[in-house]
Structure formats: structure tokens, C-alpha cells
């Protein structure tokens, strides 16, 4: 049973027309409803990933520059701190020496005073 025959094989035209219609409808719905949105989302994701990578690259460069600057500053600060410490140590030495001298004088004075007092008591 069929509309016509090709080499003795019956061909049912209705089946073919139905198949063509349903496949066209499938592709049309797929394109309109689902794929256009999904492909758009894929494109925008690709673009945003690209942007993010570029942004990350710039940030990385900036961070490297900042790092160099920071390192220089740290070195300078370390050197300054060393100088200050050396200076402070010198000053401290001077102060300690002066203090020691002063203490020695005070001790000698006190000793002298004590002796003089003892002598005075022994005389009376």
C-alpha cells in the first residue's frame, strides 16, 4: 500500500511529509527556544572569561610593581634602622661611661666623707 512505487517498493508519501514537518518543527523550536539562549550564554561566558583574564593580567603587573616598591622601601627602612641602632649604641656607650665616671666620683666622695667622720669620732 502506498501512493506510488519505485522499483517495486511501495512509498508512502504521508509518512515522508509527516517526517519532514516534524523534523522542521523540531529544529525550529530547538533554535528559537533553547539554542539561541544557550549559545548567547556561552558567548557571554567566553567574553567574560577573556575580560577576567585580561583584568588578572593587569592586576598581576600592578602587584609586581607594588612588590618592587615595597621591597625598596623595606630595604631603606632596614638600613635606617641599622644606622639608628648603631647611633643609639654609641650614645648609650657614652652615657654608660659618663655614668660610670660619675658613680666612681660619687663613691670616692662618699668614702672620703665616711673616713673623715670616723676620724672625727675617734678624736673626740
Amino acid at each position: 500500500m502506498g501512493e506510488f512505487e519505485i522499483f517495486g517498493m511501495p512509498v508512502s508519501l504521508g509518512t515522508m511529509i509527516f517526517q519532514a514537518v516534524i523534523f522542521t518543527a523540531l529544529i525550529w523550536i530547538l533554535k528559537q527556544k533553547f539554542l539561541s539562549k544557550l549559545v548567547g550564554a556561552m558567548e557571554s561566558r567566553r567574553e567574560s572569561i577573556d575580560n577576567q583574564l585580561n583584568l588578572a593580567e593587569t592586576y598581576k603587573h600592578e602587584a609586581e610593581e607594588e612588590l618592587l616598591k615595597q621591597r625598596e622601601m623595606t630595604e631603606k627602612a632596614t638600613q635606617e634602622a641599622k644606622q639608628i641602632i648603631a647611633k643609639a649604641r654609641e650614645e648609650a656607650n657614652i652615657i654608660v661611661k659618663a655614668a660610670r665616671k660619675e658613680a666612681f666620683t660619687i663613691r670616692t666622695e662618699a668614702y672620703e666623707n665616711e673616713r673623715r667622720a670616723l676620724k672625727g669620732r675617734g678624736a673626740s
Binding site: 500500500m1 502506498g2 508512502s12 508519501l13 509518512t15 509527516f18
Partner: peptide, 11 residues
Amino acid sequence: LTFDLSIIITS
């Protein structure tokens, strides 16, 4: 027109 019901259902 001739329609093959099984093909119509399955497709």
C-alpha cells in the same frame, strides 16, 4: 495519503 502509524508515533 498513506501514513505509517508506527513511524508517526516513534518519530
